[in-house]
């Protein structure tokens, strides 16, 4: 039974691909074409996302990864500087940590 209920843990690369698709949905394909979205991309500086776009992105992360991660809780523990400097890689690592501690 356990084998059936245990969810497949996503690899680092798979998480990166999912998050990239969320960013594309939020800011629109026409803008993403000119961008090089990497793990080192920061949300505000490199991707130029504003706060309401980060809200949309957070909602997508929450609805995709569900109750296994407290994404809003994690974000709320950060101060403004940390939020501004938040990189894609930080989120990938956070999701990976949540998956392994399930």
């Amino acid at each position: 039974m356990d084998a059936i209920t245990t969810q497949h843990k996503l690899s680092n690369e798979e998480i990166f691909t999912i998050l990239k698709s969320f960013i594309t949905e939020v800011i629109g394909e026409e803008f993403v074409e000119d961008m090089d979205i990497s793990r080192e991309s920061s949300f505000t500086r490199d991707l130029e996302m504003d706060s309401i776009e980060i809200v949309s992105f957070s909602e997508k992360v929450k609805s995709h990864f569900g109750e296994h991660i407290d994404f809003t809780g994690w974000l709320s523990s950060m101060d403004l500087d940390q939020l501004i400097n938040l990189k894609l890689d930080d989120i990938i690592n956070y999701i990976e940590t949540c998956q392994s501690s399930k």
Binding site: D50, S51, I52, I54, V55, S58, S76
Partner: peptide
């Protein structure tokens, strides 16, 4: 402005 002024820090508290 928009609701994001509350979303990240104020609302979770």
């Amino acid at each position: 402005s928009n609701l994001s002024v509350y979303y990240f820090n104020i609302a979770p508290v």
